[in-house]
């Protein structure tokens, strides 16, 4: 029989204190943020409507909606996605399926980690120096998307690698044993079995690309550009464009006398897009985990 001594009780009490202190620390990080998000929504409520999304900013960006920046962000995200996805997925295939343990593989992994750690403003300088000036593309959606693609590549590589690594080795061995080559195995077995994991990575890349400001500031995003409302093809590849993140920065710091609801509305739309996209990725991941057959 165990009998509680004075010491055990003190230990128990002690443990409880620690638990509550740690819980408090966790809540102190999370709760204020949830409050802030609700505050942003509360401030933005009067302006949020379908019209806000579908009308251009007017009167020096002091009125109207966010159509031009919203469409610009969609363009930047989609084109950066088109550039980053093949490179990122293939890079992950190389690292997970082909690369052996060696100093060279280590250098590649190190480069991926470092690419993820480069400050966004340095990516902006790189985009300006390499794409806008050196390649002569000029400030354009294409140059900005390329900069975003390189910036978000590590996210894609990391999550695709994880998805590929989750496919059991036995699947590959079975395929090799019936005479398939390495690439055939990857195409017919590995990729189909990890497609939802790869999709999660692509979704995360979208959310990251949609929120970035610094890398597009000097490579293709402009303060103001009016486009045809409702025209989904209003931007060309070599045009400059507005972007939601840049628009939020502009109307909250660069333009005087903007009605308060306008930047709040823009912030909530941007935050909403990013969080929704992320939530989608999380739901997808949970689904995959629960449905896993092996």
């Amino acid at each position: 029989m165990f009998i509680r001594t004075h010491l055990t009780r003190r230990k128990k009490r002690h443990e409880l204190y620690v638990k509550y202190v740690l819980l408090l620390m966790t809540l102190l990080i999370i709760l204020p943020l949830i409050l802030i998000v609700f505050y942003l929504i509360y401030q933005a409520a009067p302006i949020l409507s379908l019209d806000f999304l579908l009308k251009n900013p007017i009167r020096g960006m002091r009125d109207g909606g966010i159509w031009a920046p919203l469409l610009g962000t969609i363009y930047l995200v989609l084109i950066s996605l088109l550039i980053a996805t093949p490179i990122g997925v293939f890079a992950a295939v190389y690292l997970n399926e082909y690369a052996r343990e060696s100093w060279f593989t280590r250098v590649i992994n190190l480069a991926v980690v470092n690419l993820a750690g480069v400050p966004s403003i340095v990516h902006a300088l790189f985009g300006l120096g390499a794409f806008v000036l050196f390649a002569g593309i000029g400030r354009s959606i294409l140059a900005a998307s390329m900069t975003l693609a390189i910036m978000t590549l590590p996210v894609l590589i990391a999550s695709t690698k994880e998805a590929l690594a989750a496919v059991p080795l036995a699947f590959r061995q079975a395929c090799w044993n019936v005479g398939a080559t390495r690439w055939q195995t990857i195409r017919e077995v590995v990729l189909p079995n990890s497609i939802s994991g790869i999709l999660t990575g692509i979704i995360l890349q979208v959310s990251r690309a949609a929120g970035e400001t610094a890398p597009i500031m000097f490579t293709g995003a402009v303060f103001y550009k009016a486009i045809q409302e409702g025209d989904l093809l209003a931007y060309g590849l070599l045009d400059q464009c507005m972007a939601l993140s840049m628009h939020l920065f502009t109307i909250s710091t660069q333009v005087p006398d903007v009605p308060a609801a306008l930047p709040y509305g823009t912030a909530v739309v941007l935050l909403g897009v990013v969080l929704l996209v992320n939530a989608l990725a999380i739901v997808l991941r949970i689904k995959i985990r629960s449905r896993k057959k092996w």
Partner: peptide, 11 residues
């Protein structure tokens, strides 16, 4: 925590 990490820097 993951959602927290996703909030854009401009926000």
């Amino acid at each position: 925590i993951e959602l927290l990490a996703a909030i854009p820097s401009v926000v």
